[in-house]
Nucleic acid binder design. Structure first.
Length: 531
DNA sequence: TCCGGAAACT
DNA sequence: AGTTTCCGGA
């Protein structure tokens, strides 16, 4: 059946289809060889040619607008060989992503959805700043995300989506990046908020460049793919083969790759999403690192994260890494109603509307801080939940880790081995030293970061020094779960520490020459506490 | 327009 | 599992 659709066949045996295998068969759809809708969406988003049809919403992280629903549906239908496809159906499929947390609907904006990149990988590699001058591709999602892992080959003539692409899309609107070619498609265009509070500026200079070893999964013919994927981290700034594509460089590292920022094991990720990883064994690009961080960007990023966490009920675990982060209530753009929509748990049983509503009331406690004058966000309460959720989704996670060795597992391995060197904590400011673990909890000042780590880990990263004994002692007092968690964090402490100090510490933000500041001390301390 | 249940399909 | 198709409801 679907004879006419043979095009979509997977490249088995080198069959020529252009999509890498993982595009069809990913962890997100084990066994599935068909491209998934969200892959497809990302694919379209990646292509400039489709910018008239669907594009990233500027000013909003991960948000995209379907400018021409019918066309998108048509393309999707073509790809799936479902000529009867229409936006209504397609949107139904998109709605199924809500519960999976892959997508969210941006309320109030027509045809606007938002990828929950946080769940993907994001929180982990924030400020990779490789593009000094920063022009972020207009089509790029504001934040580095797992999507980067999607390095879809160009929808060339082989692509079913394009094949008979009637002259609908002017073949090359190539607008200099940074410009919105919106004008042409005067269809339904949502308002495009332009960096309002500058919350998006950070994006401009932030781009991710990850050490993705590009060589894809084993089966893919490396030569086939564009070289960009292979850009090593060291790529010089400005070296963007495909400036318009957020996917040009995958942040997902292969192995060591990915971010050098670890993903907390606790981080709730949709297993499906998370495992995007090329087959293990690939390369060792190990995280190399040449990042540079910019405090400003970091702040923006954190804000974004914070908002996401609270708006989307992402696991606060994403916070631990940004202890100093305070959720800026006013800046969260999500309507309050959405803020408590989901529990933090991942992949919970599908929550029906009714249930959700019910939950809202129950969970409100999680978000209240947003509104309260309380200067900080308190995440502690969620800890337990988090832990639980860790366990629950553990299956998926485990699977991912074990099978792929990518994902978190990879991180762990990578982190332990290289991380230390990769990310070293900058010298800790003296003040930070003063606040020892025991007192950290009340560190005052807004600046003092809250350990938001989910709470349990207060002692987690103390500023250099005494970590050893102190931690041990606390360790003993700590409940096993926390201990475990802490251990996890301990692995990634270096970053955590770094991040925590971010803002106070000056990152070496040399844009042009990204590199890390290595501070042996920090590493040592961490290592010590770890063991 | 959007939502989500239900059932069927692949 | 991931849609596709249909549909009633808001």
């Amino acid at each position: 059946m679907k004879a006419g659709c043979s095009i979509v066949d997977k490249p088995e045996g080198g069959g020529g289809y252009h999509f890498p295998e993982w595009a069809y068969k990913t962890e997100s759809s084990p066994g599935s060889r068909q491209i998934q809708l969200w892959h497809f969406i990302l694919e379209l988003l990646q292509k400039e040619e489709f910018r008239h049809v669907i594009a990233w919403q500027q000013g909003e992280y991960g948000e995209f607008v379907i400018k021409d629903p019918d066309e998108v549906a048509r393309l999707w239908g073509r790809r799936k060989c479902k000529p009867q496809m229409n936006y209504d159906k397609l949107s139904r499929a998109l709605r199924y992503y809500y519960n999976k947390r892959i997508l969210h609907k941006t309320k109030g904006k027509r045809f606007t959805y938002k990828f929950n990149f946080n769940k993907l990988v994001m929180p982990n590699y924030p400020f990779i700043n490789i593009r000094p001058n920063g022009v972020v591709p207009q089509s790029a999602p504001p934040v580095p995300t797992a999507s980067s892992r999607f390095h879809f080959p160009p929808l060339d003539s082989h692509s079913p989506t394009e094949d008979a692409q009637p002259s609908r899309f002017p073949t090359g609107p190539l607008v200099p990046s940074g410009q919105e070619p919106l004008s042409d498609s005067s269809e339904r265009k949502p308002d495009v908020p332009e960096l309002e509070d500058g919350s998006s500026d950070w994006r401009r200079s932030m781009d991710l460049m990850a050490p993705r070893n590009a060589v894809g999964p084993g089966g893919i013919n490396p030569q086939k793919r564009k070289p960009e994927i292979m850009l090593p981290l060291f790529t010089r700034p400005g070296m963007y083969p495909d400036p318009h594509s957020p996917f040009a460089v995958s942040p997902l590292p292969g192995r060591g790759g990915v971010l050098n920022v670890p993903i907390s094991p606790a981080m709730s990720l949709t297993p499906t999403l998370f495992s995007y990883s090329p087959s293990p064994g690939l390369s060792p690009f190990a995280g190399s690192s040449c990042f540079s961080f910019n405090p400003e960007e970091m702040k923006h990023y954190l804000h974004s994260q914070a908002c996401s966490v609270f708006n989307y009920h992402l696991s606060p675990r994403t916070f631990p890494r940004y202890p100093g982060l305070m959720v800026p209530p006013l800046q969260c753009q999500m309507p309050p109603e959405e803020q408590t929509q989901f529990p933090i748990k991942l992949q919970p049983p599908p929550i029906g509307r009714k249930n959700r509503e019910r939950l809202e009331s129950t969970e409100e406690s999680a978000a209240p801080q947003l509104a309260t004058p309380s200067p900080r966000v308190k995440i502690e309460p969620m800890v337990d939940k988090e832990l639980e959720s860790e366990e629950l989704p553990a299956k998926g996670k485990d699977k991912a880790e074990r099978e792929e060795g990518s994902g978190m597992a990879m991180h762990n391995a990578t982190l332990e081995g290289e991380k230390g060197t990769i990310f070293a904590r900058p010298a800790a400011p003296s003040w930070s030293l003063t606040q020892s673990a025991s007192t950290q909890v009340n560190v005052s000042a807004e600046e003092s970061q809250e350990q938001g780590d989910g709470g349990g880990e207060k002692p987690s990263r103390d500023p250099v020094g005494e970590t050893g004994t102190q931690e041990k002692r606390e360790d003993a007092l700590m409940p096993p779960k926390l201990r475990l968690k802490r251990r996890w964090n301990g692995d990634r402490q270096p970053e955590a520490t770094e991040e925590r100090q971010n803002g106070k510490v000056h990152w070496n933000g040399a844009l042009g020459a990204p590199h890390l500041v290595a501070e042996p001390k920090a590493v040592t301390a961490t290592a010590t506490s770890d063991t």
